[in-house]
Simulated scan of single mutants.
Amino acid sequence: MTKVWDGFIRGFHWLLVLAIAVLYVTGEEGYLEAHFITGYLLLALMLARVVWGIIGSDTARFSALFHSPKSALRAMCSNDSEVGHNPAGSYMVLLFFVLIFIQLISGLMSTDDILVEGPLVAYVPSSWSEVASDLHHENFEILLIAIALHVLAIVVYRIKGKNLVKTLLTGKEKGVVTTPKMRSGKLAYIIFVLFSIVILGAWGMQPLQALLG
């Protein structure tokens, strides 16, 4: 068994799943303080992932995510083992990055024109806030579709004999030809905590105090 995912990448994946689920529930039920705090923590997590995509393990780096469309099509038709994400999976990862950052940035500029507004509303034109508010709702629908496709792909690969969920839990995979260079995920978690402190300190104190009563 070869280690292909470091501790932060594995934790990042499951924290991302949890954060999106919480954002969906809190947004639908109107628990706005929890919605804001979760959004800020997700922003910190994504920023830490960006940093880790530059300095992290081989399989975590952005350079491992860019492949030609031909390679992606070949990967979808092949059952060969790849180190980390295969080319097709890399396209899905990049799509998630784009959709999640759109969701986060639009949320920072969104307002309901009554009680709730993001921390950047005061710094952008009102027309931007209107567009951001609409985009925040519409983009989440696209994100849900992307998640459904991702789950479907996991099921298909499981039928083909490749257990992607187990690999993301253990970080290890068999049948890998080359051994990627790993870095300890502890540094990435420290970066995540630092981003969280800065973002919550700048924008999250009021909703955090309201949430804690």
Rank of each mutant, 00 (worst) to 15 (best):
P69M: 03
L23N: 01
A153P: 10
V83H: 01
A210M: 14
I100Y: 00
L164I: 08
L115K: 14
L208W: 12
L43S: 00
A19T: 02
L144Q: 09
Y157S: 12
A44N: 04
F195M: 06
A132C: 03
I147T: 03
V155P: 11
L212Q: 12
I100H: 03
G118V: 00
G53K: 01
L211C: 10
F66P: 05
T178H: 13
C77L: 14
E141H: 10
T38H: 07
V4D: 02
G11M: 06
T170H: 04
G118M: 01
D134W: 14
L41Q: 07
L120I: 13
P207K: 04
K186M: 14
A44W: 04
K3N: 07
N86D: 06
A75P: 05
E130D: 15
L144N: 09
S127L: 09
I37N: 01
L168R: 08
R74M: 05
T59M: 03
H136I: 02
E117M: 14
F62M: 09
V176T: 10
V155A: 12
L194I: 15
A153Y: 11
T170L: 03
H136N: 09
M109S: 11
H150N: 06
E28P: 07
L95E: 00
E117R: 13
F140G: 01
H136P: 01
H136R: 07
H67Q: 12
N139R: 10
W52A: 01
L16E: 11
L94M: 11
G213Q: 07
F12K: 06
H13S: 04
V98N: 03
E173P: 02
L41F: 11
V25Y: 14
A34W: 08
V98A: 15
G7R: 02
F97R: 04
G30K: 08
K162W: 09
G30A: 10
E141R: 00
G213I: 06
S81Q: 13
V121Q: 04
P87A: 03
A72N: 05
L143W: 01
F97N: 06
F66G: 03
F8N: 01
W5P: 05
